[in-house]
Amino acid sequence: MLKITSLVKRYGAGDPVLKDLDLEVPGEEVVSVIGSSGAGKSTLLRCINRLVEPTSGKIFLNGTDFTSLGKRELRVGRRRIGMVFQSFNLVDRLTVMENVQSGRLGYISTWAALSRRYPKEDIRRAYELMERVGIAHYANKRADELSGGERQRVGVIRALMQQPEILLADEPTASLDPKTSEQIMTLLRDLARELKLPVIINIHNVNEAKEFSDRIVGMRYGRIIFDDLPDALTKDAMHEIYAGVPHEDRQMEGAAA
């Protein structure tokens, strides 16, 4: 289970991007995080695996305090968190298999990585997962020869190769057309069920969020202002999440203070 307590992220001297944020993701559920651009969704996700260093607060994943990990421990910790990106973040000039196996880089020896002699069980698992999402026949293709949907499948498999305890997806469908986007969301939900994996998805498309998740978290200007079942996301609630601009929020806070 993931537990975030009083998380603050501040860039430079400006206003914090995340303001004293608490979030708990107990078991195997798909959580969608919605909110307008600049609400801090992406920063929240990147704080969990410390691609962005949190300013203060605590993050626990199944009992491990991620905020207190040293450099080496953090590398070991990151293996336990899979991540899927908006623009896939594949290495274009490597083959699909190499991209998939790069999810195992935290585990395998440097020599295995260098010579591309991956362990047998890793290769078997890679083929199984690739077959599951229908890209096994691309194993020897270069990643830049694939379509967007196929590339995101490679991205998902790369994350799953880590055998993670949680999956983070940062706008995984924002670069895809609606149909492909739907397929990837279905895939994420089904894989989460099959592998009993909690998933946190940053997403812009509210309809997709409602359709594919078990729980929706609404963020506005660095705070969580909605956290409930998808059915509870009423028009009013959505209005509160998306209306206004950060600038107005800032003024309101100033007035309140």
């Binding site: 691609l51 990151r78 990106f85 973040n89 000039r93 935290g106 990585a113």
Partner: peptide, 30 residues
């Protein structure tokens, strides 16, 4: 180079050397 694959491999828990090997070397090869 495109920094995005570098970020992705860091997130996988790859060591610095392996990030160089998999995310930087292929990009500067040509």
């Amino acid at each position: 180079i495109d920094p995005k694959p570098v970020e992705a491999l860091k997130a996988c828990g790859a060591s610095h050397f392996k990030v160089v090997l998999y995310a930087i070397v292929p990009q500067v090869m040509p």
